[in-house]
């Protein structure tokens, strides 16, 4: 069946090709009005990105953000039927975006914004309950492989910008000055209603990443200690359990 009109209209929207649509217009003067659709389509995506990356927008301002978002829309138009999760490659574009090169940490800010968005909408999943573990025979514990609670996102950033990001999210922005590059491990998750973010030590991050891959507590402890002899598995496990990073263990009552 004919798709011609839709294809021509789609070219108007993605490439600005207005001439193709003109033969379908009863009144030639309506050609100028086609701009309404072009603007709506571009601005829907730009505004969705602005909402998804609030701290990137705060740090750069609306007038810087809009063309950057438009560049992303042009390279990766939405494919899902909702804009809620539009922008999964935006941090990579920010890293490459020429006008943003003076803010080399901006891509890490975008990664934090995205992790917060994903954590915010992640499935409801109760965390592993410390009491359940406490009630277990101690020899069973190393064999547990709880995995991570559904909202947990582990990030390895190139810049120490967690504080800058958190201050902006709390609407207490202060301009970041003299940030030196430095690897920073961060966990972003939603224990209840609010998304939280914390800095992790390198070994804690490695431990959680291994648990996230399905390793048992015993395996993850041994492997993490192998790369960091000072790693204390017992305290890392207790911290993860207390904070609610771990998923409910199979058979545990919710």
């Amino acid at each position: 069946m004919s798709r011609e009109f839709h294809e021509i209209f789609a070219r108007l929207l993605s490439r600005g090709d207005r001439a193709g649509v003109v033969p379908y217009l009863v009144r030639r003067r309506d050609a100028a009005r086609l701009a309404i659709y072009q603007n709506n389509v571009a601005s829907a995506s730009i505004e969705a990105l602005r909402a998804a990356f609030p701290v990137v927008n705060m740090l750069t301002g609306d007038r810087f953000f809009s063309p950057m978002a438009k560049a992303y829309w042009q390279s990766r138009p939405p494919r899902a039927r909702s804009l809620t999760f539009y922008g999964d490659g935006f941090a990579d574009l920010v890293a490459r975006y020429e006008p943003a090169q003076s803010l080399p940490y901006l891509a890490d800010i975008a990664r934090l914004d995205w992790a917060a968005l994903e954590a915010h909408h992640a499935a409801e999943a109760p965390a592993c309950c410390p009491n359940t573990v406490a009630a277990m025979a101690p020899e069973r514990v190393p064999g547990l492989a709880p995995g991570l609670q559904a909202s947990v996102r582990l990030l390895r950033l190139d810049w120490p910008v967690l504080g800058v990001w958190q201050n902006h999210r709390a609407h207490a922005p202060h301009a970041p000055t003299r940030i030196a590059p430095g690897r920073t491990d961060v966990i972003v998750y939603r224990p209840q209603n609010e998304v939280l973010a914390r800095r992790l030590s390198r070994s804690e991050a490695g431990f959680l990443r291994r648990l996230g891959e399905g390793q048992s507590l015993g395996e993850a402890s041994i492997q993490t200690a192998a790369s960091d002899p000072g790693f204390d598995p017992a305290s890392a496990f207790t911290a993860a359990l207390t904070a609610g990073y771990l998923a409910q263990i199979e058979g545990q009552e919710p």
């Binding site: 069946m1 009109f5 839709h6 789609a10 993605s14 829907a44 995506s45 138009p77 939405p78 899902a80």
Partner: peptide
């Protein structure tokens, strides 16, 4: 209205050309 073609979603309510087809 329409809003999707192939795998692109345009996130707008686009005009239907009202033919018999």
């Amino acid at each position: 209205a329409w809003s999707a073609l192939d795998d692109i979603w345009f996130a707008d309510l686009l005009p239907v050309r009202m033919t018999r087809m």
